[in-house]
């Protein structure tokens, strides 16, 4: 049973073709990685799936229902949540209130939203930050808040856009563990865009690789890092060998 099917998706901005007939399926409960060089069209792909952009052609089917053409808030309400690569928290909402906004998608009254937010705070181990303003937190904590807020809407599918970017190796390990635990505990399907290959190798069941808006490869992490096209476009010889060794040793 596929939770998401992307078929022949194309999107261009003026003369720039950011996504060229991309197609892939995501199984229920899967953890799918999306990798590729900067400007490959990964974030654009998320925006097309989540309804931020109207796509030029193709279809996106979520839980058996066509969502391409729907508005982004409608898609969110169907159970598709996402984080943003550049998360701008400029408002006066504190951490808990931010998460409550997510909870309010399903809850109608404040006491219920507050209770649900407390649970999410605990799950992400940020209860002690509840009263802080998001913009004043260190980047790692901000990423947690962004993930917690998205997850608070109770999604079936979660899109994570570079949640490990800008984190030190320790923090990467922590957030990797966190993603793994929410995946296991809540049974939510996850697609993640990531440059931190250790993380991708660690937790993804399957990976798709984008380059110049095109899907150039698809397979298990071990498979794609062996592919010459992927090595040429993205990984480079040296890193590919290194990642391969890591993968073998695991």
């Amino acid at each position: 049973m596929y939770i998401l099917q992307v078929q022949n998706l194309s999107k261009s901005f003026g003369g720039l073709q950011a996504n060229r007939s991309i197609g892939f399926d995501v199984a229920q409960g899967e953890m799918l990685g999306v990798i590729g060089p900067n400007g490959a069209g990964k974030t654009t792909l998320f925006n097309c799936i989540a309804g931020v952009h109207q796509i030029d052609s193709g279809r996106v089917i979520f839980q058996g229902r066509r969502i391409s053409g729907m508005k982004s808030h409608e898609i969110a309400r169907l159970g598709l949540a996402r984080t943003f690569q550049i998360y701008v928290a400029s408002g006066d909402l504190n951490v808990k209130e931010n998460i409550m906004v997510g909870c309010f998608m399903r809850e109608r009254v404040r006491s219920a939203a507050a209770k649900a937010a407390d649970e999410t705070l605990g799950l992400f181990q940020i209860s002690h930050l509840a009263k802080n303003v998001v913009a004043e937190l260190p980047i790692a904590a901000q990423k947690r808040v962004a993930m917690a807020t998205a997850l608070a809407t109770g999604p079936r599918l979660l899109l994570l856009d570079e949640v490990a970017a800008g984190l030190n190796p320790n923090e990467v390990d922590e957030i990797t563990g966190l993603i793994r635990s929410i995946h296991a505990k809540l049974g939510v399907t996850i697609i993640l865009i990531e440059h931190v290959m250790e993380m991708v190798l660690n937790i993804c069941d399957r990976v798709i690789v984008l380059d110049y808006g095109e899907k150039i490869s698809e397979g298990t992490p071990r498979e794609v890092i062996r592919e010459p096209a992927v090595i040429k476009a993205y990984l480079g010889e040296r890193y590919a060998r290194q990642y391969l060794e890591q993968a073998e040793n695991r």
């Binding site: 989540a50 931020v52 508005k71 982004s72 808030h73 969110a76 309400r77 949540a81 996402r82 943003f84 998360y87 701008v88 928290a89 400029s90 408002g91 006066d92 909402l93 906004v101 997510g102 309010f104 998608m105 807020t149 998205a150 809407t153």
Partner: peptide, 13 residues
């Protein structure tokens, strides 16, 4: 007020 795109992604019309 904080960010309309984020608000939409949280199901807000």
């Amino acid at each position: 007020k904080s960010n309309e795109e984020v608000a939409r992604s949280l199901g807000i019309n």
